[in-house]
Design a protein around this nucleic acid. Structure first.
Lengths: 195, 195
DNA sequence: TTTGCCTTTGAACGACTGTTCAATTAGCGT
DNA sequence: ACGCTAATTGAACAGTCGTTCAAAGGCAAA
């Protein structure tokens, strides 16, 4: 039988993923060696291969897990008015991403280091998330509450704007996250509102 | 005297920068070897060192040149109304960046591969560009034409939104660049307008 | 205590890294 | 045609890379 209680793999496995996430975000996938990850965990490089078949799959799993958590964490409420659904999305997006700077960073920077199949898988998850926002914008446009020429473009524009928060926001900075969210919500709301 | 007419360096020099730009954008700085760049140019790796003291300076020069061209290409016209100055900025930003996808890509992705001094230099140029937009937003806010809580945040929000075009826009796609610019201008204008 | 498997080590593999430099090539001014 | 020199080669240097695997270690069940 496989060991369960006190098995090292229960400890080492998460440590490997945490170390890889931190190092990939800090130095970039290509610049981080398996030995550097192992050193951070406190094992030899060979031991890492008990937890991932190869380096690229390690990255893929980090990206996949992040995207799946993102999709699982946001639940739209179609019974609300479009403007309220949009407000909830903006609030959620900024908070969720501000909590996970490393995951967000590698999700944008390291996509090209995935194999074509892995890239497609992550890209499909990302599109699912975009579709959630697009559905909100579309419902508002259909109801005449929003004035949007093309909901797909508006979706990408809003997401780019919101995700941009991660490039400069730091806890303890000039503005609180609540203040940041308030201003972004104001801009997003006005940008899609009609008349 | 140094050779001028027909000198190989007049040909090889630009080819080195073009090859490096393309390969860095495609595969990432760390994943591109000097031998790969040399092979693209059609020389041996050692010959590259006639054109750059080292690999990182090659990247630095690409980023610096891009930022300097960006700053040189945009000229604000303070005699115009704030809303017209902003419209010119949006139009310029999207067009300039759409023309240079590789330069834009590495300017966002490869900053962390610069030495601290080189990073600061590029960052200073970027801030100069941001300041141009912030001045426009501030003038509109002062005149009461814009309704902006914090012009610095609005600046970053607008730039993130506009630069996001580069992640999906392709010539020959569903929408022309003019159509894209029209919608982004509509969204940006509304997002900062008062009333 | 013994057994047996999970986990880790540490060395090894072949390939690739940025950079240097003496030797060689090739083209311009004379 | 010749000399000069900028431009290039090709080998070498000292490492690092991802990955593999036989051997050893260590913990739990029996």
């Amino acid at each position: 039988m496989a060991r369960t209680t006190g098995s090292h793999s229960d400890i080492t496995g998460p440590k490997v993923r945490e170390a890889a996430l931190r190092l990939f975000a800090q130095n970039g996938f290509a610049a981080v060696s398996m030995r550097a990850i192992a050193s951070e965990v406190g094992v030899q490089a060979g031991a890492l291969y008990n937890y991932t078949p190869d380096k690229q799959t390690l990255l893929f799993n980090l990206l996949c897990t992040h995207m799946e958590q993102l999709l699982a964490a946001f639940t739209d409420d179609t019974s609300l008015a479009p403007v309220d659904r949009l407000r909830r999305f903006v609030d959620f997006h900024i908070r969720f991403h501000a909590d996970r700077p490393d995951e967000v960073f590698i999700s944008y920077m390291e996509l090209r280091n995935l194999s074509p199949e892995n890239f497609s898988a992550v890209e499909a998850l990302r599109r699912q998330y975009e579709d959630r926002l697009q559905a909100i914008l579309q419902s508002g446009a259909d109801a005449g509450e929003f004035d949007i020429a093309d909901t797909k473009i508006a979706t990408l524009a809003v997401i780019a704007m919101l995700t941009g928060v991660n490039t400069w926001f730091r806890v303890g900075g000039r503005l609180s996250l609540d203040q940041v969210i308030a201003q972004y919500w104001d801009m997003v709301r006005k940008s899609v509102m009609s008349g």
